[in-house]
């Protein structure tokens, strides 16, 4: 299961599994995001390279305006994936407390 939604204050909240089966859904939603955007990953259990591709594509698009994605509430497992893939050097990341 995968869910993505936007809260009133503009934060995008994702939960469940961001895998190859859900990547198109996530990308279609994030294509509507403009400028600086915070993505709350507190409910995200899993991400694969397909999900990483969605984040990278969106980050590159919004970064052209000097903004970018900020990823917050990232759990340790997903933080490891970001580290292995070098995403910790590309994104502003806040780990889950």
């Amino acid at each position: 299961m995968f869910e993505i939604r936007k809260e009133d204050q503009g934060t995008v909240v994702v939960s469940g599994r961001l895998d190859a089966a859900n990547a198109e859904t996530a990308l279609a939603f994030l294509d509507g995001v403009e400028g600086q955007c915070v993505i709350d990953m507190g409910g995200l259990e899993y991400i694969s390279s397909a999900g990483l591709g969605v984040l990278l594509r969106t980050h590159k698009r919004v970064s052209t305006g000097g903004s970018g994605l900020k990823l917050v509430n990232v759990n340790p497992h997903i933080r490891d994936i970001f580290s292995y893939s070098g995403f910790d050097k590309l994104f502003e990341i806040e780990e889950a407390s």
């Binding site: 390279s49 990483l52 969605v54 990278l56 590159k60 893939s85 590309l90």
Partner: peptide
């Protein structure tokens, strides 16, 4: 860097 990264190839 970001401008040299492209989606894909990480799996």
């Amino acid at each position: 860097p970001l401008d040299e990264r492209t989606p894909g190839g990480l799996g």
